[in-house]
Simulated scan of single mutants.
Amino acid sequence: MDTGSVLSTIAAEVQPLVGQGAVASYIPPLAAIDPARFGLAVRATDGAEHAVGDATERFSIQSIAKVLSLAVAMDLEGDTLWARVGREPSGTAFNSLVQLEADGGVPRNPMINAGALVVMDAVLAHTGPDATPVLDLVRAATDDATLTVDGAVAEAEIATAHRTRALAHYLKAFGTLRGDPDTVVEAYCRLCALSMSCVELCRAFTFLATGGHAPSGQQVISTRQAKRLNAIMLTCGVYDEAGDFAYRVGLPAKSGVGGGIVAVMPGEFVAATWSPGLGPRGNSVAGTMALELLTTYTGRSVF
């Protein structure tokens, strides 16, 4: 299969959708991004890489980073982590306060904001607020020490994170959050401000397609953890659109309100796409279609 040709075909077919939807206007630096950007990259487990469009331009990966912090937390806490956060699809918005109350202060899964705060709380309990274990994992997974947080995006998120702070303090009130809520929120906002390109995302998530091995061959997580992370991405990774995404794309995936989506075909490849225009549930309009076409044209999905 000529993967490069497939990606070019996909880019041409999704072009009418590029710019549709709305950018994440509640974070000022994201609101300023040109909605006409589109990138798509694929990295096979044998190391072959193909990209089209704006696939080498870095953007704020936002909630995609939740997978990386979860990988660290699972390594640090093991299965005890699941006493404080569930593994079921949410069915409601990623920042819902109502669902958190209905569930007795235990977040439905680690891919919604409340769950990600608990995950970050677990990481900080082992490393302290000044440690960078998630960034260390990203750099190890990509063998790229230049990857870092976009400071402007991080500060804008911290300044506007009122609902996230409400979730954190609500979690603290239930006893689910053990550390200082404001410290956890700041660390979480900085995590979401990680800046990567589609090509770099494919490298960073290669460990989920190879049973835990980074492109360098280094084992960054266990095979067991890789299996479980893929399962959580499949059922919970695209907010409350998991069923429709599984129907259309058929791959474990994680999206972010920066317009990025990363998807994994275990044992075969990682794909990443970026287009800032979001649909009503916070997922990239053009990006979702690009991944749907990728699994359609290649005939490869987990189903």
Score class of each variant (00 low, 15 high):
123 V>S: 00
83 A>H: 14
98 V>R: 15
123 V>N: 01
81 L>R: 06
70 L>S: 10
147 L>D: 12
47 G>H: 11
47 G>N: 08
112 I>N: 03
36 A>M: 15
132 T>N: 11
118 V>G: 04
133 P>M: 06
90 S>Q: 08
66 K>R: 09
118 V>N: 08
98 V>F: 14
60 S>K: 14
134 V>M: 06
69 S>A: 15
63 S>D: 10
106 V>R: 12
62 Q>T: 09
128 G>H: 07
122 A>N: 00
83 A>D: 15
133 P>K: 05
133 P>W: 06
146 T>N: 05
59 F>H: 12
142 T>G: 05
151 G>D: 15
70 L>F: 04
86 G>I: 10
83 A>P: 02
125 A>H: 07
48 A>Q: 14
61 I>T: 12
110 P>M: 00
41 A>G: 00
64 I>Q: 10
44 A>F: 15
107 P>N: 12
144 D>S: 00
54 D>Q: 10
38 F>S: 09
66 K>Y: 13
114 A>V: 03
108 R>C: 02
56 T>F: 13
68 L>C: 05
106 V>S: 02
118 V>Q: 06
105 G>R: 01
47 G>S: 08
108 R>F: 00
123 V>C: 06
50 H>I: 08
37 R>K: 09
128 G>Y: 01
43 R>M: 05
91 G>V: 02
149 V>I: 12
37 R>D: 04
112 I>C: 00
133 P>C: 04
66 K>D: 09
45 T>A: 05
120 M>V: 05
83 A>I: 13
140 A>C: 13
50 H>N: 08
101 E>L: 12
111 M>Y: 04
52 V>S: 07
137 L>T: 10
99 Q>F: 10
36 A>D: 12
76 L>G: 01
96 S>Q: 07
131 A>Y: 04
61 I>H: 05
141 A>W: 08
151 G>N: 13
39 G>D: 08
69 S>C: 11
137 L>D: 13
149 V>D: 07
78 G>I: 04
43 R>W: 06
150 D>W: 15
58 R>W: 06
145 A>D: 03
115 G>Q: 01
47 G>A: 11
121 D>H: 09
38 F>L: 08
70 L>D: 07
76 L>Q: 03
98 V>K: 14
43 R>K: 09
43 R>Y: 04
151 G>M: 12
73 A>T: 00
59 F>I: 08
150 D>G: 11
74 M>V: 07
125 A>T: 10
130 D>Q: 15
105 G>H: 03
70 L>C: 11
124 L>W: 01
